[in-house]
């Protein structure tokens, strides 16, 4: 039997990797890839907690995961639209070069 700990650790690992991707990738789209990883890690976590819950008739975990799906989709859509718009304007997708708020 797979203890819950393993699933949760997996989720933590995915999350950390995603975090690393967000913080260190140059391309804006790659950053969003990292964000997706993080969201997936969250979903894994939620699903694991649902399965290892005491009352399996309560679908809270899964519902939450569904909602996260919807949010992730929305976020990706808008985020990529923004990246494309920025690319059109500034002709670059490198996050470091988009520094209009620099002092």
């Amino acid at each position: 039997m797979v203890p819950l700990t393993w699933y949760v650790v997996l989720s933590a690992a995915l999350f950390s990797i995603g975090l690393f991707g967000v913080l260190s990738r140059r391309n804006a789209i790659a950053i969003l890839l990292g964000v997706e990883l993080m969201l997936n890690a969250v979903n894994v976590n939620l699903a694991a907690f649902w399965r290892y819950g005491s009352d399996l008739t309560k679908m809270t975990g899964q519902v939450f995961a569904i909602i996260v799906f919807a949010v992730a989709a929305a976020e990706v859509a808008v985020g990529l639209a923004l990246v494309i718009s920025v690319y059109r304007r500034h002709n670059t997708v490198i996050a470091d070069e988009i520094d209009l708020l620099k002092w």
Binding site: T5, A12, S16, L23, S24, R25, A95
Partner: peptide, 25 residues
């Protein structure tokens, strides 16, 4: 593909994982 401070990001990721792992495990 990685910006100049990628090591800081790696560090943070590592620390996060370590922290979470220590708590969860």
């Amino acid at each position: 593909q990685h910006n100049r401070n990628w090591w800081l990001g790696a560090l943070i990721g590592l620390v996060t994982f370590a922290g979470l792992f220590s708590v969860l495990f």
